[in-house]
Amino acid sequence: MTTIQILVSGVLIGGVYALLAVGITLVLGVMKIVNFAQGELLMVGMYLTLLLHTVLGLHPYVAFPIVVVALFGLGAGIHFGLLRWVVDRGHTQQIVLTLGIGIVLQSAALMIFGGSFQSLQIEPFRGGSIVIGSISIGTTRLAAFVVAGIATIALLFLLDRTLTGKAMRATAMDRDAATLMGIPVQRVYLITMGIGSALAGAAGVMLMPIYPVYPTVGVNILLIGFVVVVLGGLGSVAGAFLGGIIIGVVEALAGFWLGAAMSQIVVFALFIVILLVRPQGILKGDTV
Rank of each mutant, 00 (worst) to 15 (best):
V230N: 07
V230M: 11
V230L: 13
V230T: 08
L231P: 00
L231S: 01
L231A: 08
L231I: 04
G232W: 00
G232S: 03
G232V: 03
G232Y: 00
G233A: 09
L234A: 08
L234C: 09
L234Q: 05
S236R: 13
V237R: 05
V237F: 05
G239L: 03
A240V: 07
A240I: 06
A240C: 08
F241C: 01
F241L: 05
F241Y: 13
L242G: 05
L242Y: 01
I245F: 04
I245G: 01
I245H: 00
I245K: 00
I245S: 00
I246R: 01
I247V: 13
I247C: 01
I247K: 02
I247Q: 00
G248A: 07
V249R: 06
V249I: 09
V249Y: 04
V250M: 07
V250A: 09
V250Y: 05
V250S: 06
E251K: 10
E251V: 03
A252C: 12
A252H: 07
A252F: 07
A252S: 06
A252D: 04
L253A: 07
L253C: 02
L253K: 05
L253N: 02
L253E: 04
A254D: 09
A254Y: 08
A254S: 10
A254C: 12
G255S: 13
F256I: 08
F256R: 06
W257R: 12
W257M: 13
L258S: 13
L258M: 15
L258Y: 09
L258R: 15
L258Q: 12
L258D: 15
A260W: 12
A260E: 14
A261W: 15
M262Y: 15
M262N: 15
S263P: 06
S263N: 10
S263Q: 11
S263H: 13
S263I: 13
S263C: 14
Q264V: 14
Q264K: 13
I265P: 03
